[in-house]
Structures are given as C-alpha cells and as structure tokens.
Design a protein around this nucleic acid. Structure first.
Lengths: 342, 342
DNA sequence: CTGAAAGCGCTTACAG
DNA sequence: CTGAAAGCGCTTACAG
C-alpha cells in the first residue's frame, strides 16, 4: 500500500503538501503539484478512504434501506428502475451506495443504528413508508439526513419524494369513465400503506365527482402480488352485479387479474377494462398490453438521491416534499381497438 | 458523538480497556466488562466504523459491480432475486454491500480502483462476464478477493459461481425433442457472452445426439430484450421451413417471442412450443405460461457471497468454481394440455 | 487483568 | 507556497 508519506519522501516534500495536492488546494505551486501528481501516478497512489473519512467526518456514502420483508419489494419489478435512478445521481455526485436489508424489525433498527451512529454513512434513503415507523422516528429525532420515497404525515421535517397518488388514481379512474364505464372497481394493496390509501381516495373522488356509485364489494384489498389479482377476480366476477372497469394498484397485480379473467373465460377489454399502476417494462407485453400509470420510477430514485445529497452538503432543505409527475399510458387493456370495434 | 475515551473517563478505566470490552477480549474481568457495557448502553456508544477499519485494515464491506450498461441488467428481472441472495448471506456474515454502477468503461476501472486500492471494500462480486474483461485482469493481477457470477476461461484462479449452462440448454432442447419436435430453433442473446455460447453448445449437442438437423437459419442472435424475441419471430416464421419448437435464451426474450407469435396469428404451444431460461416470477403469468429453466438465481447470489467471504477470512479457496444446479419447470408453452389434446 | 504509548493514513489550523 | 505538529477514534503489542 503506497501512502501519502511514501509519495512525500520520493517527491521531497512534506505529507501535508501531498495531501494538499490531492485535494487541489489552491495555494500550491504549479511545479510542486505537477511533480507530486506525476509521482502519485508512477507509484500508483490511491487515497485511503477510511483515513480520509475519519478526519473529515464524512463518508461520501448513502445507505438504501430496503423494507423489512425484502421479498415483497424485490417482487416489485420497478425496484430495479428505482435503484437505477438512485445510482445514476449518487454516482454523479460522487457518493457510494450501501444496500441494507434487515431481516427482523429489531434487526432493522440495529443495523440502521450501526450505520448512523457508527458514522458509516452520511445519509439514508428509505424505501418503505409504513405508518408509525419507529425507524423514521429515530432518524428524525437525531436529525439524521434522511429521504423517504413515499409519504409520511407524522414527520413534516423528513424529506420525501412521492407521486401525487390521489391524483394518479383519479386520472386512471376518469380514463375508464371517459371510456363509458359506469361500474368501476378497485383492486388495492395492503390498506396500511399510504400509497394504497392515497389511490383509494383518488378513485373515490372520481366516482363522486361524476356521480357514479361506489360499492364496497367492488373494492378488494390484498398484496402487491399477482396472486392477489388472481384471487380478486374469482370474487369480483362472482358478484351478481359486476364492474365493467377496474383500477388495479400495481402492474404485477394486473398480471394476476388478467390471468384470473382469462381462466374464467372473460376477455379484456371487452368484458372488463383495466388500468393499473407503475408501468413496469412487461406491462406492454401482457396479453392484451396493460394500460398503466407511469409514476416516473427512475426520476423518483434520482430525485431522492439528489435532494438528500443537497441536504447533506448545504445543511438546509429547500423543500421537504417533492412530487414526481405521473402520466397515463393507454394500451389495449382499457380501450377497444378500432378493428375490434367495427 | 460519544467515543471510547468518553466511556473510559466515566468508567474510570483506560481507553484500551474499553476497546477490549467492545471486542470481547478474553482477559477482561467480568466486573469491568459489565460496568463498561452498562455505561456504553447508558451513553449510547457506537463504535466508529471508519476508525476501526483504519487500524484493522478490513472494512467488512463487499462491492457489487454492476455491468456497464446497467440498463440491460436491470431489465433482467432476475437481478432482484440475485441481489436478495447476495444480501441474505452477506448480512448474515456481518458484511455490508456497496453497490456500484459505472457509466463508461474508463469510469468502471476508475471506480473499482478507488474501491480496491482505497481499501474501501474487502472483496468484489462481479455480475458481468465479458470475454477479456480488463477489470478481471486487474483484480486477478492484484490478487484482490473477487468472485464472478458467471464463467471465465482466462482466469482459473478467480472464484466463480455459475450454472452448467451447456447442460441446461441440452435439457431444454431434449424436453422439446421428447415432446416429438424434430425442427428446433434457438433464439439466443449477444454471442460474445459466455452464457450464450454455453447454451448454444448444449442446444447443438442435443440435436447431434438425437440425429436431428441443425440449421443456422433457425438460430437468431440478439439482446436480452423482449424486442429481440419479437423480431426473431418475424424472421423465423417467414422461413419456408419453420421450426416447431424453440429454445429461448431468457424469459423476457420469451415474452417478446410470445407477443410476436400472437401478432402473427400463431398459437403456443400448438403452432410452436417454447422453453426459455431463468424462470422469472412472471413466466408463469404469460399467456400461455412459459416453460423455463430455473437457474437457482437466489442460490447463485447466496453462494457467490458465501465463497467470497470464506476466501477473505480464510485466505485460501477450497474450490474456485461452483456450479448451481438448474431444473426445468414445465408449463403450458411446451406441452399440450390433456384437455386441448382431446 | 489493565494501562501507556505508538500507530493506522489522512487533514488542517498555525506558523513562517 | 510549504512544513511540523496535533488529532480524527480506534487497536494492539509491550510491560507490569
């Protein structure tokens, strides 16, 4: 391992000077700087990251904390896209990313404590947004730089990046209404998640504003899993009065819905129209392709990383809540093709 | 920040003693240990990770290096599953994971150099396996603990975890042959990837052993993208003599194949049977569900992390190459259901 | 069983 | 523009 001292010795200068050259200190002569840089190159010098961060009290590292049952998240296919956004921005800003998946709740706070109090990372990106999350409580209390992808009511000071999920669900529902549907159902996710609550609100508002009926039996709650969508269908399609349009919380669930309908012998969109959320890459490959609300997954990650780094570097948040725009991608699942219509 | 000195002062012992208590040094009296531990608890002491690793010259951290065009990999839906395996094992062993995505080739070696020579991590997990990879050359030359998920001929000393892709492709092909197919095609990926080469070998061996014809026009190379599969179909189905069975390099490509066939008006498996690789979660949700070779993605990641950590801790590799078993999951895309047959 | 001292590799006022 | 010195928070022979 070649250190700053080794370079100093060879270059005939002091370690302080080498350090200044490395950090591009302004008051270093051109010659000295060039000579030292040449020697660093020749000797293959690389600064010891640990030593540097010990004195600078900064690690140039952020941690991504995955929700506890990581399985669920990894099933969410937009996770890769989210990660891609986070990585793109943090790499650009010169930050490394630490990935953490806790197994148990106790484990989770244990792990995060270690990272936070052990000064292992400069900031934390939370991907979960459970209500009354003790983790957020802790981070907030210690004023540790944190950004939440999602929404929290309880902690107005915590940075967050989210979609306007209420509006997104409103848009999805309105799209079905514009297509002429009057009986619209909602296949939701875990009701404790804010995202599910928000989308439920938007769905209901669209019905209310257009004077269409809201029927509690047309709302099915479940998980972010295809099985949920699958099961929802055997229930919904068994009702005496069935919806003709469906808003679905997630594309993967949408896949399950599609499979359920196919097995029951129904055709999409002829018997039932479908709009879901997240616009994962495979949505357009479904049979038929699924209409989906694109939530700007990449931008969600990119922005989260960006505002967290800004907070770390400037110590004051310009804006604690960022909203990423969404847009509806219309595909065959919610619109009759001209050919089929005629 | 409460340090070891603060604890020492309050406990009335030396910093050395506190340090020994933290690391459970055997020759420390029960009383001292208990008192110090109590005070640490009270004062909320957390060891500074950076200081520790500066002196111990170990970081308890591994880096995952994503292949250059991260987009491609993230499209591969089994990436999440792989990561899950890696994280499960490394968390268990007390290692943190650093995630790195380089943008350019120059960037990549720059980033990895920084991590390796800056003593930022103790080991590296490579997810790419390009031929003649300068990164592997570099890591091998410096004997830096590295594990490759995939295969390399050039570096027999580098740890690697892989499937027997030749055999897997052989099995997939034989499955189609057993179903009675005599004209079998292969939709492959980028021919420079070892995985594509290996699977091609297995495909050919199955044909050879059963005396079936190999036709170069029945082999289409492409990317790990659904578009590749889609395009392959317009070509293959336009041939005067078409295959009746198809081995497809990846499930996502398989989705594209399915879409292409549907648009062209063909039915799977009646007009064409299909087997692909990786068994991503959505394979069973395709219409029809896709038969796929499960490559044990989770185990691939888990094992990679495991043997790397063993190498780091024991300094000698028991076995440089590990093979994860695969198995064929038969679904509707390659087998006529009884109902349909009758 | 415990402490004083040196050191890991770097940075940064302070002095010149 | 440059150097000597102190220090970041920890560990670990060495001595007792």
């Amino acid at each position: 391992m070649v250190t700053i001292k080794d370079i100093a010795k060879v270059a005939g200068v002091s370690p302080s000077t080498v350090s200044r050259v490395v950090s591009n200190h302004p008051r270093i002569s051109k010659e000295t700087s060039q000579k030292v840089k040449r020697i660093m190159e020749e000797m293959g010098y690389h600064p010891n990251v640990m030593a540097k961060s010990l004195v600078s009290k900064t690690t140039q590292t952020l941690a991504i904390v995955l929700p506890r049952p990581a399985e669920e998240l990894f099933q969410d296919f937009f996770f890769g896209e989210l990660l891609r956004g986070i990585l793109a921005q943090s790499t650009r800003a010169g930050y490394d990313m630490l990935l953490t998946a806790a197994t148990s709740p106790h484990d989770e706070s244990e792990t995060v404590s270690r990272l936070v109090f052990g000064r292992r990372v400069d900031g934390i990106i939370l991907l979960s947004s459970r209500v009354n999350d003790p983790l957020i409580d802790m981070l907030d209390k210690h004023k540790f730089p944190t950004v939440l992808i999602g929404r929290t009511e309880d902690h107005p000071n915590i940075l967050s990046v989210d979609n306007n999920n209420e509006q997104a669900a409103y848009d999805a529902t309105m799209h079905l209404i514009v297509q002429g549907h009057e009986r619209i159902g909602f296949v939701s996710g875990p009701p404790t998640l804010t995202v599910a609550q928000d989308r439920m609100q938007g769905y209901q508002r669209a019905l209310r504003e257009t004077g269409l009926p809201f029927r509690s039996e047309w709302v099915v709650e479940g998980e972010f899993l295809q099985q949920s969508g699958y099961r929802a269908m055997s229930f919904l399609m068994g009702l005496p009065e069935r919806p003709s349009g469906l808003v679905v919380i997630d594309d993967v669930v949408g896949f399950g819905v599609l499979r359920g309908l196919t097995e029951l012998g129904y055709k999409v969109p002829d018997d039932l129209s479908l709009v879901s959320f997240n616009n994962i890459a495979l949505s357009e490959l479904a049979q038929p392709p699924i209409s989906s609300i694109d939530i700007g997954t990449y931008q969600l990650g990119y922005t989260a990383s960006q505002i967290l780094i800004r907070l770390i570097q400037e110590e004051n948040a310009h804006q604690t809540r960022m909203i990423i725009p969404h847009r509806l991608i219309v595909r065959e699942s919610s619109i009759h093709t001209v050919a089929k219509r005629s």
